[in-house]
Simulated scan of single mutants.
Amino acid sequence: MKLWWSLGLRIIVFGLLLAFLLQPYWFAPLLKPLTQNNAPAIYNQGSLLSLTLSHLQIVLIATVAATVLGVTLAILVTRKFGAEFLALSRSLVNIGQTFPPVAVLALAVPAVGFGEKPTLIALFLYGLLPIFENTLTGLTTLQPSVIEAARGAGMTGWQRLLKVELPLAFPVILGGIRLSMVISLATATIGSTVAAKTLGEVIIAGLLSNNLAFVLQGGLIVAVLAVLIYDSLSALERLMARRMGA
């Protein structure tokens, strides 16, 4: 019963979000009290659906890139030939956490110009750490008996990695990807300060015009997306963990 109630709530929230993106003016009466001087209640300087899709695209590209590098580095430092690079790898993936995203944007704009590119760089650097650390944890906490059994079955190092280690570590790796993606969803809003097409446009427009309705709808879309994606990846993580016997 609890499971069905939870699933129904998720479907309702997703349906409301989709309805707002497709027909935002249906919700204008709810947001009108937050406006002043007869200002518009619904963002009217672009399509909310288009901005949302662009926002998600930037986040997805940055997360995929961070996953490829983060997982690759973690695999490298958990092999005998790459163990000595662990400290260096940790230093590299911590760069994104050392510099605030705004500072990364400021440094990236002179090199790559305005638009999506500096935003992608900032999100990529900011999302590396959780993916790398979770992959490292997943690969280094496997039961030695499992690895020995695979070795005893005659598997090569790459076979053990691809058929045993990565599948068993996948739920933990997915947890890092989930955290990285949710962080990127929120952080991507600042990309609009360098002309990237994100939902930050709605929030910035609201701040500049003192229109709380704009600020609220931009923030709510990002928040609902973050909750839905976090919840979906958490469910997938639990499913994979059960399949792996964890």
Rank of each mutant, 00 (worst) to 15 (best):
L76N: 00
L73E: 01
R242K: 14
E133D: 15
L128C: 12
G219Y: 02
N37M: 01
G206P: 00
A111I: 15
V215N: 03
L31N: 02
I221H: 03
Q45T: 15
F214V: 04
S234P: 04
L34I: 05
L105W: 11
L21D: 08
G15A: 15
V222H: 00
V146G: 03
G157L: 10
R79P: 00
L9I: 14
L212D: 03
A195P: 02
T189K: 05
G115S: 09
S192L: 06
V194H: 05
S184D: 09
R90Y: 02
F85G: 01
A241G: 00
N94A: 14
I61M: 01
I173H: 06
I131S: 02
G206A: 07
I183A: 01
L31Y: 07
T187C: 05
I229P: 05
S47M: 04
A41E: 08
G46L: 08
I204T: 14
L236I: 08
L179F: 11
L208A: 10
L73V: 06
D231W: 12
A241M: 12
L120V: 06
K80N: 04
I12F: 12
L225E: 05
L123G: 03
W158Y: 09
L216T: 10
L22V: 13
L51M: 09
V13G: 03
L17T: 09
G113N: 09
D231S: 12
S145R: 15
L212R: 13
L123N: 03
A108T: 13
L86A: 04
L125V: 13
K117N: 12
G138N: 09
M240W: 14
A108C: 08
T72F: 10
G191V: 03
L60I: 14
V215M: 14
Y25K: 06
I61A: 08
F214N: 03
A188T: 07
A195H: 13
V109L: 08
K197E: 07
V64L: 15
